[in-house]
């Protein structure tokens, strides 16, 4: 075959791959929008499910997802930021401990999300919760069962690497000259971190937080048995209550509800809400990160 023909075919094939991926992305978006849009209105967003979840809205699932991701972020962001500071500012390149920490972070990033669920069940509920009940409640069951706190903390572990990676990347874009300027003025290392490094990585911390929230809002496997509930007639009142979540709601409605076909509009609309949420969060994060990278160059 002629070389030019081969070149054209190969380039065409690679181009088609790109188009196919983009086509799939667009299809998912388009079908979800077309399927979900007609049912998406204020009542749907603001009402509880009704009539055995065949009618009504998804208000408790929205609130549950929001509360869960907030608790998750409160737990994950400080730990993530501090770990990133350690890796970027305190650990030397050759330190074995830093290498182990880095490997641990990567491991956390690739461990299947269902394993976090198992861990949440075994550790938070079966170990911490049970012992809390033994100590605080005289053995009466309160913390030793699934609830929003354990689900959020489980999710926090899952999203910890997301925060660490984003923040470390941002910290590393701060030029060495800035740190040297501060240190040469007699600032201590911690003063330099607090006054120069952290203010310079605000957008990175923000990116990491948004990505973590987006990831946490969409994950279902870790909360399957650590706190998500099929249906609740009340919003969670305390950290020891269960909660409804958007992702879990989609799963339940599309696979286990009594009449899957009849509730299809609800399923599509819920998916659209979740997708809009994660999609817009990601879009913001990607833009922010892109800017940080550009600035670094």
């Amino acid at each position: 075959m002629n070389r030019n023909v081969k070149d054209t075919i190969f380039e065409g094939l690679t181009g088609i791959s790109v188009l196919l991926i983009i086509f799939i992305i667009v299809s998912i978006l388009a079908i979800t929008i077309v399927g979900g849009w007609p049912n998406l209105n204020w009542t749907f967003l603001s009402e509880f499910p009704k009539d055995g979840m065949t009618k009504g809205g998804i208000f408790p699932a929205i609130v549950g997802t929001a509360v869960m991701t907030i608790i998750m972020a409160i737990a994950a962001v400080p730990f993530g930021v501090i770990t990133a500071i350690y890796l970027a500012e305190y650990a030397s390149e050759k330190s074995v401990i830093a290498k182990i920490i880095r490997f641990a972070v990567k491991t956390l990033a690739v461990v299947p999300s269902i394993i976090f669920g198992l861990f949440g069940l075994g550790f938070f509920i079966g170990f911490i919760g049970k012992n809390m009940d033994g100590l605080l409640n005289g053995g009466e069951l309160r913390w030793g069962q699934p609830n929003i706190l354990w689900a959020s903390l489980t999710m926090a572990l899952l999203t910890l690497p997301v925060v660490i990676v984003s923040v470390e990347e941002a910290i590393r874009t701060i030029p060495r000259e800035m740190r040297e300027a501060s240190l040469a003025l007699g600032a201590t290392k911690w003063q330099t971190i607090r006054k120069v490094v952290l203010p310079g990585s605000v957008s990175g911390i923000l990116t990491g937080t948004i990505l973590a929230v987006s990831r946490g809002a969409g994950e279902v496997a870790p909360i399957l048995f650590t706190g998500a509930a099929y249906f609740l007639s009340n919003l969670p009142h305390s950290l020891s209550d269960q909660f409804m979540s958007l992702g879990y709601h989609i799963y339940i409605m599309s696979t286990q509800s009594s009449n899957v076909d009849a509730t299809q509009p609800i399923q599509f609309a819920t998916t659209l809400v979740l997708l809009l949420l994660t999609f817009s969060l990601n879009a913001v994060a990607v833009t922010l990160r892109y800017r940080i990278r550009k600035k670094a160059k």
Binding site: Y248, L274, T278
Partner: peptide, 21 residues
């Protein structure tokens, strides 16, 4: 960035798309 956005699709959404469509 467009392809990377696919990473932001929750797996439950992809699962739903697979199941329904």
């Amino acid at each position: 960035p467009v392809i990377e956005l696919l990473a932001g699709f929750p797996s439950v959404v992809i699962g739903f798309f697979a199941l329904m469509v």
